[in-house]
């Protein structure tokens, strides 16, 4: 391979408007992901992990104060939400949204068409969808249900990974895809993520609060996220250490004594 895709996040500062005024959440995030790499971002609740994920995807609530996000050198922050997806970014959401009136089938076909710029060939597409659903142990009936409507937490997460497998992005951010899953569902979902990586060689930003998903999806790099920035980074061994110690040592106030 001659060309290597890369997603670079540079000194990213992000705030959000609240009833109490502007709240600073991200305070200088730096991160670079090459295609084919798996980066785990671990951190306590409220540290800003979802904010990072939403900012990459372009959620209008999050205001970028400074910094940049580059996809193969192109400024992602200047793109609309849908343009980012078409450029190859994907966000598996922590809380996937219910879409009344739109069936999974219809949604998938519309999304695929939007991303490819043309409708997928009907036969292979139907086959691909069926196969992906079977792999994720999703009942066929899901295809005709409205997107996420009445889905259980686990079903919603599978539906996110179904999209990941079918839309074939260059980079995917998975925001706590593991939370709320029992161990069987966790394995199924992890297999799906690993399959997507094998098939397309995408780069992954795996956001998680717990280490247990890392038993099934093996990260190349682990970043500890605290108070809106990366506090420490390392290899998979850092996850083991977090498993034993928790986040406590990152949370003690720095001005002791």
């Amino acid at each position: 391979m001659t060309f290597m895709s890369v997603l670079e996040i540079k000194d990213l500062h992000v705030s959000v408007e609240t009833d109490q005024g502007t709240k600073q959440i991200l305070r200088g995030v730096n991160l670079s992901i090459n295609e084919g790499e798996i980066h785990a971002i671990m951190g306590p609740n409220g540290s800003g992990k979802s904010t990072l994920a939403y900012t990459i995807a372009g959620h209008p609530k999050y205001h970028v104060e400074s910094g940049s996000i580059l996809l193969d050198g192109a400024e992602v922050l200047k793109m609309t939400v849908d343009a980012r997806a078409r450029a190859g970014l994907f966000l598996a959401m922590q809380y996937p949204v219910e879409i009344p009136g739109v069936t999974v089938t219809n949604f998938l076909r519309t999304a695929k068409t939007a991303i490819e710029g043309e409708a997928p060939p009907i036969r292979t597409w139907i086959k691909d969808v069926r196969q992906a659903m079977t792999d994720l142990r999703m009942d066929k009936a899901f295809a005709e249900r409205n997107v996420n409507e009445g889905f259980s937490g686990g079903e919603k997460k599978r539906n996110e990974i179904l999209q990941l497998e079918l839309l074939k992005p260059k980079f995917a951010v998975l925001d706590e895809t593991d939370s709320g899953l029992d161990v069987d569902a966790l394995k199924i979902v992890s297999e799906g993520v690993n399959r997507a990586k094998t098939n397309t060689g995408l780069g992954l930003l795996l956001i998680t609060h717990y280490t247990r998903i890392l038993r099934y999806i093996h990260p190349d790099f682990v970043h500890v996220f605290v108070n809106g920035r990366i506090a420490e980074q390392g290899g998979p061994e850092l996850a083991d250490r977090l498993e034993d110690e928790g986040y406590d040592r990152f949370l003690v106030p720095s001005n002791v004594g």
Binding site: A57, V81, V97, A114
Partner: peptide
């Protein structure tokens, strides 16, 4: 946002939802 995050334009997203519903 969810639909746009899958590459679908705003206009298409509305159309999709309403058409599907009705």
């Amino acid at each position: 946002f969810y639909l746009q995050a899958r590459g679908i334009t705003e206009e298409e997203a509305r159309r999709l939802v309403v058409r599907g519903f009705l």
